[in-house]
Amino acid sequence: MDKAELLNAIQVLTSEGRLSRDDVLQACKAGTQENSDVVGARGVGNRYSSVLSFAGGGIVFMGIAIFIAQQWDGLNAFMHILVTLGLGIAAYFSAILFSQIKQVGSLDSAFFLIAALLLPLGIGVTLDELGFESHHGSMSVIIFLIMSAVYALSFSLFKRDLLLLFAIIFSTCLYFGLINYVLGPVPLFNEASLLSYAILFAGISYMMLGYVVHNNSFQAVSGFLYGFGVLAFLGGAFSLGGWESNQNMLWELLFPGLVFLVFYLSTVLKSKSFLIFAALFLGSYIIKITAEYFSDSLGWPLALIIAGLGIIALGYFTLRVSQRYL
């Protein structure tokens, strides 16, 4: 019986009263549970393997870094480049080879991680040994430009979550590096405000990319983008509001609107990280505004009571949204 025939049969039986909606829903639930038990068991195994691979990769990198640091003075320039850049390139190509072999599980992830940690160091060492003089972070820009290009190209070839994640991380580092470089030595801007704006826009970019990535089968990366995106967005907006005696009224008035926008988006995108961060930031905002504007007029104890009640209401609201929409 194919799907169309089955659905037709359900329709007929339901119209005759021989099958209810609850019967159909119960059958679906039972079927999904069974599958998830099987997939879950397999999934748990894969997850442990990935975690151990990552942990192992990180420990390998630490070992290499400590060994190199201990032997550094005794090595010449060529060896400096070989043990950093050379090892990084070797790890990268090993990862590519392992990614072609299904039986090794997530071994390639461990080697991509080692390469991601070693290659920037290797490029920096190489530039330094070649006599490159960094001005205002120009070396950082070159390193992250190369790393972003390498991992973006790798992602386009191999379509792996981890490669996309590293491409995004290195591109973010490149973004901040470029801002630092173009600012140069001149203190033209209020650096704290500029940084807040840079983080806020990075957050917006992350959230947009998270949506695209989520709808194109890279849910693991979308979780990272949503979480860090909303944190950066709300964090940037919160800090732009300023603190007592130096507040920015526009951002202080705008912030609650942005938080409720994030609450709304959490229901549309079904994202728990949006909901949690919106709740946390709204709670922080309540405390901040109470302390700034009401502690002198109402007195600290009353201000704390109002803030506390606001946060309790916020907690209830968050729970209701989570239960109803997520």
Partner: peptide
């Protein structure tokens, strides 16, 4: 929609840097 979001998401950081460059 995804294409628009992808392009916008990539252009935002570039726009920020171009803005700083042009101001300076």
């Amino acid at each position: 929609k995804e294409r628009v979001l992808l392009i916008t998401g990539l252009l935002i950081p570039i726009g920020m840097i171009m803005f700083i460059v042009s101001v300076i």
